[in-house]
Amino acid sequence: MRTEFIPSTPTHLTYRLYGSIPNLPLSQLHTKLKLRKAELNKKFNRSTRAVNRGARVQHKELLTETEREYYIAFDRLLDHPTKGPRYLAGNRAKRVIIDSWRFIAEQRNLTIYAISVMSNHVHVILKSDVRTARIPLSEVLRDHKKFTATRLNRLHASPGRRVWAEKEYCRTVRHGKFERVFWYVLNNPVKAGLTDDAVNWYGNYWAPELQRGFIDLRVA
């Protein structure tokens, strides 16, 4: 689920290591999503949606819920892997990812609200700070993945290793849902059973300006 350009509103991005989800369960998940969307498009066909505002709204809401359910299932596969690479687990590897995003944010005029680096995938909430120019997501990810792949392979003495899966999940955070998505990202290691303290998890990062309004209130 790709957006062509980075929006000027908060966007939740998830990407993963190559081979982190076995092909069969991933294929089954994609098929389930595709069939559900086809069912909804048949139930609320285009001609009906064109003349019936209620049908349009319901169709959009059900599609949104379907994609949310798909994403939760996708993320669950990543949080509880039975096999596959986990070479983002170490603190030095996590720092490679976080530092890369912070550097890119400065170079590309992005705001990085939150990052959670898990053992086999990464969550980021970001937005573009430039309203007059469009920043291609594909370019940003290309640069980030190329740089971090080189650094990770050097760190693990594994030259030439394929690091990142090609596709990612990217979705705009809906109005009024920022706090929920923010804590969904930071609580990822808690949900996966890796820690009971999201605030002190080494792989978590948040924008300093969110400290008072979000972090301090949670730990108070």
Rank of each mutant, 00 (worst) to 15 (best):
E4C: 04
I6R: 02
T11L: 02
L13P: 02
R16L: 01
Y18M: 02
S20G: 02
N23Y: 11
L24R: 13
Q28I: 04
L29K: 07
L29P: 06
H30A: 09
H30I: 12
T31M: 11
K34R: 15
L35D: 12
K37Y: 08
A38T: 08
A38S: 10
K43C: 05
S47C: 00
T48P: 01
T48A: 10
R53K: 15
A55Y: 06
V57H: 08
V57L: 14
Q58C: 08
L62W: 14
L63P: 04
T64L: 14
T64N: 15
T64Y: 14
E65T: 13
E65A: 15
E65Y: 12
E65H: 14
T66R: 08
E69Y: 03
Y70W: 14
Y71R: 15
A73C: 03
D75S: 11
L78K: 05
P81W: 01
T82N: 12
T82E: 14
Y87F: 15
L88R: 06
L88D: 05
N91K: 15
V96M: 07
I98H: 08
I98A: 11
D99H: 13
D99A: 10
S100V: 04
F103D: 12
F103K: 13
I104M: 14
A105M: 07
R108Q: 14
R108E: 14
N109T: 07
L110E: 04
A114K: 03
S116N: 10
V117H: 06
V117C: 07
M118W: 09
S119N: 08
H121N: 05
V122S: 02
H123T: 09
V124N: 05
V124I: 15
I125C: 00
K127I: 02
S128Y: 05
S128V: 07
V130P: 00
R131T: 09
R131V: 05
R131N: 09
A133Q: 13
I135M: 12
L137W: 02
L137N: 00
R142C: 08
D143P: 00
D143G: 08
H144Q: 14
K146Q: 14
T148Q: 05
A149H: 04
T150S: 12
T150H: 13
N153W: 01
N153P: 01
A157N: 12
A157L: 10
P159G: 06
P159N: 03
V163N: 04
A165R: 08
A165W: 06
E166G: 11
K167Q: 15
Y169V: 01
R180W: 04
R180S: 08
W183E: 03
V185Q: 01
L186C: 04
L186A: 04
L186T: 02
N188F: 05
P189T: 02
A192I: 04
L194K: 13
A198I: 01
V199L: 10
W201H: 13
Y202N: 07
G203A: 05
G203Y: 07
N204R: 06
N204G: 10
N204K: 06
N204Q: 07
A207W: 05
D216A: 11
R218M: 10
